[in-house]
Amino acid sequence: MTFEEKLAKLSQIVERLEKGNDLPLEDSLKLFEEGVGLVRACRETLENAEQRVTNVLETDNF
């Protein structure tokens, strides 16, 4: 999943949990764990991201 997809998924989970009083507890917990996992993954991605720069010409004569 890309960072963008993770964020979108996270927002879906929060929404589902907000509305989901009908949701069985087990399912809520699963969603919760998934959500917390996504938060952690996104945060790590952001904090550990190192900017990559590629020169498509492999030359910098300009």
Partner: peptide, 21 residues
Amino acid sequence: ICQQLRKRYPLAEVLLHPTLV
């Protein structure tokens, strides 16, 4: 550009196509 990206959103990869300007 590189400096600003590092600061703001290092997730994005930069592909430079060097050229005379």
